[in-house]
């Protein structure tokens, strides 16, 4: 089975790489296998890691309130499925409303606690660090960069006049950040590519040790 698995993996890898030449039936074959198996994979994953332990197993083992309260999410889930029935599809909005409400509530709490406050707190660093001029420069870049990049997202006033210069600095730093993130992403994708080429040359063809 191991050898068959290696050959299937090599075949699928080459099918996808064939797209570099042009769109072709081999690529389409691998693409459709990927879509079908990914959808099923996600379903199996969610069933065995979420639905089974949190609903089915919990319903079997719990008693009283903890057991019967599970009817609510089950009902909301069933309501969500009604979307496929056009006449009563509007009822699915109730389940959607629950998830939207949950996301919004969490959005406010985590927005303040997880993003705004920690980021502001981390920006309050000393501007002058005695005996360490490099850290002083770094802290200055951090403070100025954070303030000017935040200012760029202030759209209530046209970016003219006194705020033009700080916003220009903000855009420049945002560009540096985008460039760095881009470089980082390229490296991550290249390491994946190296991994696939290594698989073909090492695991499949045994050409490299």
């Amino acid at each position: 089975m191991y050898i068959i698995g290696i050959w299937i993996a090599a075949f699928l890898t080459l099918c996808i790489f064939s797209f570099l030449y042009k769109d072709n039936p081999f690529y389409k074959l691998a693409e459709h296998i990927y879509i079908g198996s990914s959808a099923a994979y996600m379903f199996i994953y969610v069933y065995f890691f979420d639905v089974k332990p949190m609903l089915i197993d919990k319903f079997r083992t719990s008693v009283g309130f903890d057991k019967w309260i599970l009817i609510i999410p089950s009902l909301l889930g069933i309501i969500m499925l009604l979307r496929v029935v056009p006449r009563i599809g509007w009822i699915s909005r109730w389940a959607i409303a629950f998830t939207i409400g949950l996301g919004s509530g969490i959005g406010i709490v985590t927005g303040v606690h997880g993003f705004v406050l920690p980021q502001i707190k981390a920006t309050f660093v000393p501007l002058i660090v005695m005996g360490n001029w490099m850290e002083s420069i770094n802290n200055l870049v951090l403070i100025v960069g954070t303030l000017t990049a935040t200012l760029y997202f202030y759209f209530s006033k046209e970016h003219k006049g006194a705020i033009r210069l700080p916003i220009r600095i903000g855009i420049s730093l945002i560009m540096v950040a985008f460039g760095a993130s881009f470089g980082y992403t390229v490296m991550a994708r290249l390491s994946l590519l190296i991994g696939r080429i290594y698989f073909l040359l090492h695991d499949w063809l045994h050409l490299v040790k």
Binding site: G107, I108, L173
Partner: peptide, 18 residues
């Protein structure tokens, strides 16, 4: 510099999200 700009972007995203 990347962290500074990212911080500004994150604050902007968070305020929009709230």
């Amino acid at each position: 510099p990347q962290m500074a700009a990212k911080r500004g972007i994150l604050i902007g995203i968070a305020l929009g999200m709230i």
